[in-house]
Design a protein around this nucleic acid. Structure first.
Length: 332
DNA sequence: GTACATGATTACCG
DNA sequence: CGGTAATCATGTAC
């Protein structure tokens, strides 16, 4: 604060003012001198000086003058600010952070639960769950940083606010300070700090976005399904060749058997159908192989009356309406 | 390194 | 929304 005073008062030359003997002048000069040197003194000394200043006989007069000036200028700075209706950008950031689980309450054990669920689901490729937990841990890292930083800012903000308020309260003894003024000051401080917070939120959002895109890219790094899983899927496909559209339940069952997700099953069937259709010749051998397999399986488990259908016989219940759409058998 | 296989993604359709 | 078709990007066999 010495700089404030220095600037405000200027560096008046000839402070001693000994040239003219006017007592008032010397009094003011003394006061200024004291103010100028107040920071060079120890706290106790300063406190004592402050007390002396407060008790100075000129003080009430000066104070009333200040009040008068303030009264006049105060009107002009009335309607300088009207509460802005919150930055939509900030709202967006908040929403995103909340949606990504960065800003919200800590999801206790969420990551651990997900990992254990993934790993306990059997022969599923551990890779996806590993990547998933990697993503989770990175996210919680971001989250931790975000929260500690946010806390730091909040603490600093409140500390600074109380500091300023104390200062103002202190100053209100020597100059008129309206409660409204204090409010404004606090508002200004909060605005400044919240702009810093916005920056923090922005960079956190960016970090999350980068992490996300990396994770999505990583998901593209596919791993082939296990031999066993492909076996099961092919078995189903070729034994339902006339209508290779597993129902939702069937997909779930297949997913469980193969240790993959339902959407992976859907992907597989989507790819298989289109690729089979595109080049049936190429798949002929495979088709025969699985037809044979199911034939063996059928004869082993029970005397099956059907000939397993490499010829595309309908085995699916959906045929009961006669609408065997997409039957690939016509290509054979 | 190349060519093919394969799982995932995307645009579009009904 | 679930399907098809094209495409991407990687896995894998040679």
């Amino acid at each position: 604060m010495p700089s404030f005073l220095g600037e405000a008062l200027g560096d008046p030359p000839g402070l001693d003012g000994s040239e003219n003997g006017l007592e008032n002048r010397r009094d003011i000069g003394d006061i200024l001198q004291q103010i100028m040197t107040i920071t060079d003194q120890s706290l106790d000394e300063a406190q004592a000086k402050k007390h002396a200043l407060n008790c100075h006989r000129m003080k009430p007069a000066l104070f009333s003058v200040l009040c008068e000036i303030k009264e006049k200028t105060g009107l002009s700075m009335r309607s300088t600010q009207e509460e802005e209706p919150q930055d939509p950008q900030l709202v967006r950031l908040d929403n995103m952070l909340l949606a990504e689980g960065v800003a919200g309450p800590e999801k206790g054990g969420g990551a651990a639960a997900a990992v254990s669920a993934a790993t306990s689901s059997g022969g599923m490729s551990p890779d996806s769950s590993l990547e998933h937990s990697d993503y989770k841990s990175k996210l919680s890292q971001i989250r931790t940083i975000y929260h500690t930083e946010l806390e730091k800012y909040e603490q600093a903000c409140s500390e600074f606010t109380t500091h300023v308020m104390n200062l103002l309260r202190e100053q209100s003894r020597t100059r008129p300070v309206s409660p409204r003024e204090i409010e404004r000051m606090v508002a200004i401080i909060h605005r400044k700090f919240s702009s810093i917070q916005t920056q923090l939120k922005q960079s956190t959002c960016e970090a999350v976005m980068i992490l996300r895109s990396r994770f999505l890219d990583a998901r593209r790094k596919r791993r082939n399904f296990s031999k066993q899983a492909t076996e099961i899927l092919n078995e189903y496909f070729y034994s339902h060749l006339s209508n290779p559209y597993p129902s939702e339940e069937a997909k779930e069952e297949l997913a469980k058997q193969c240790g993959i997700t339902v959407s992976q099953v859907s992907n597989w069937f989507g790819n298989k159908r289109i690729r089979y259709k595109k080049n049936i010749g190429k798949f002929q051998e495979e088709a025969n192989l699985y037809a044979m397999k199911t034939a063996i399986g059928a004869t082993q488990s029970e005397e099956s009356p059907h000939t397993p259908n490499s010829t595309g016989e309908m085995k699916q219940g959906s045929s009961c309406h006669g609408n065997k759409r997409n039957s690939y058998t016509k290509y054979m």
